[in-house]
Every structure is written in C-alpha cells, then in structure tokens.
Design a protein around this nucleic acid. Sequence first.
DNA 1: GTAAGTGCAAAACCTTTGCACGTCG
DNA 2: CGACGTGCAAAGGTTTTGCACTTAC
Lengths: 166, 166
Amino acid sequence: MPPAAPVNEPSIIPAEELERKREVFRKFLTRNGFRHTNQRVAIFDAVFRQRENFTAEQLLEFARRIDRSVSRSTVYRSLPILVESGMVKEIDVGKDYKLYLPKTGAKMEQAQVVCLDCDKIFHIDAPFMEWYGQTVSQKLGLEPVQQRLQVHARCRRKDKCPNWPG
Amino acid sequence: MPPAAPVNEPSIIPAEELERKREVFRKFLTRNGFRHTNQRVAIFDAVFRQRENFTAEQLLEFARRIDRSVSRSTVYRSLPILVESGMVKEIDVGKDYKLYLPKTGAKMEQAQVVCLDCDKIFHIDAPFMEWYGQTVSQKLGLEPVQQRLQVHARCRRKDKCPNWPG
DNA sequence: GTAAGTGCAAAACCTTTGCACGTCG
DNA sequence: CGACGTGCAAAGGTTTTGCACTTAC
C-alpha cells in the first residue's frame, strides 16, 4: 500500500533559489543532450515543492497539478534523469516502490530509519558510511558507487510514534 | 534478469548436523501450529544444499528435484516461515527479487557488498551495525527490528572481478 | 473430521516498453 | 526537418491470492 497523495504545499525553497536550481537543471539537460520540455520542467518544479519523500505515483499527481499533460511514462522516464543530475535522491527501503527526495544543499551521506508501523522515514547523517564503503570496496578490489544504511524499527503504538500524523 | 538456476551440489553441512537442523525446523513447525508436510521438508532440504544466496525461483527448481510436487505457491508461502524460524536469512539488495541464504551457525550481523557488474554479493561482518541500529532507534524512541548496510560497487572489467565465474 | 496446506492459474503491483504522434532545436 | 520526447495502453516480472482439492493430526 503506497503512501497516499501528498498535499500540495508551496515550495519550501525561496523563489530565487528555486529559479537558480531550475537553471542548473536546464544546463544539465542541454549539456547532456536532453531536451528542455514543459513536462520535464513541471516534474522538476513538482519535486521541489516537496518537503518529504514521495513516490513516483505521487510525483505524477503533483506534476499534473502544474501541467495537466504530464503522463505516468514521462514521470518514470524523467526520474532517472533527475537522479543522474544529482538534484534528486532516490531511496529504496525495501518496499515495492522507490522513494524520491529533492536534494537541497550539499547533504552528506545519510542513513534511513524506517518505522515499520507508520512508514515514516527519518534521515540521519552517517558520515562514516562513505568511508566504510570505500574501505570495504577497496579490500575487494571494487570501485564503490553507493552505500546505504537502513534501520527498520517500530513505534509499537502508532499514536506514540514521533512522526505519527497529528 | 534474475540469476540463473543454481547447480545442484551436495550439502555442505555434515549429514548429522543437517539432521539436527531438520529436527529444529520440525519442532518450530509444531510449536507454531504449522504442519509438517513433505513439501516443506523438501524446501527446507533444498535450502540447506545451497552455499550461495538464491532466489525464490531458484529454490523452486531446487526443491522440485527433491520433490516433484512442490509448487511455486508453496515456495513463496514457505519462505516467510523459514525466515520466521530464524534458519533462513532474507536479503533485499534493491533488485526486483529477494535473495535467501541458509543460516549456518550463529552469524553476526553482516553487510553486503553488491557488485553491479557481475551481481556477485559479498557478505562482510559488520558487528557495529547492530549497535548503530539500537542507538539510533533509541534516540527516536523506536524499537529496532533489523538493520542493513549495503555497498554497491563495480568491478569495472568483469574478468577482473574477484568473483567472476572462471 | 476439520482446519491447514497445496497446486493451478489468474490477479496485483510497480515499472518498463512499443508505437504513432508531437515538438524542441 | 530530424531526432528526441511524449501519451497511451499493453507487457514485464516477481510475488500474492482465490478456489477447489488434499492431507496432516
């Protein structure tokens, strides 16, 4: 059961910063031979109106509020580009859908604490993670690409969960 | 593209130890109100003939060599029981299928290093992982259930990968 | 005997893809 | 114009489920 649709909130990011990010994205597209389409911009904007992590399906709904013509295919085809651009983070916590998150600022590596009762995800800095990935990979003669540290936990009683809505 | 079918190797485990494990499993079933069926035993035996991690589909094939009547449904319905019994470990490395592994002896927490080029998975002791999960969960008022640390890396040239077949 | 287990095939679910049309550059 | 992008619907691939039949206890 994927998370319900998010509420359409105004961007957390100051207008000027958003504009700057849009410009970075535009340059990324051009530089890599991608085209600058209305749909991609709508999806991009939808991403940066989020303050929580969201699913592809949620992003579709959100982007459609900005541009009705955005289709599911385009969302799914755009997400890898957004991730590749480094402006969006993709998280896989072992559920059957992936989660996405706008990258604001230069964040360091983070671990996720996933509450199995209320599905809330906490993001926690884990600076040692990168070091660990490098060390271990090197020992095996491999080249580290990415690492992830996830803790699955329970709040037991939903109303006691620090992040339970309400 | 899921891994190819495994080769049917004899059990790594000494016959007597396997017998003992079978008994533990039998008791687990009885104690929890599950029934002791031929199919479950065949699946159990199939698991403990493996020395590498395997998919549900591979397990089906393997179990069928022991008991032709084993069906896909039964494999998928048995795996959660095997995992719950603590005798089989389930690993999710972000591919679209889960991996399973017989638990031999009392292993400590392990991290996985996943080679993105050859799909090989290395299991590495990471004793600090449990400590980390507890510490972080406690800070959030949650009860830790499980944690996982995964490093995704590349061997770049397949023939150079320490685990590339051949 | 009766509740639990099983096999089969269909369904579920997110994600990907083929194809014809649209549009950016 | 010509290649890249898009929408739609159908396909993909693993895992789950409904149902009628078996079987363990």
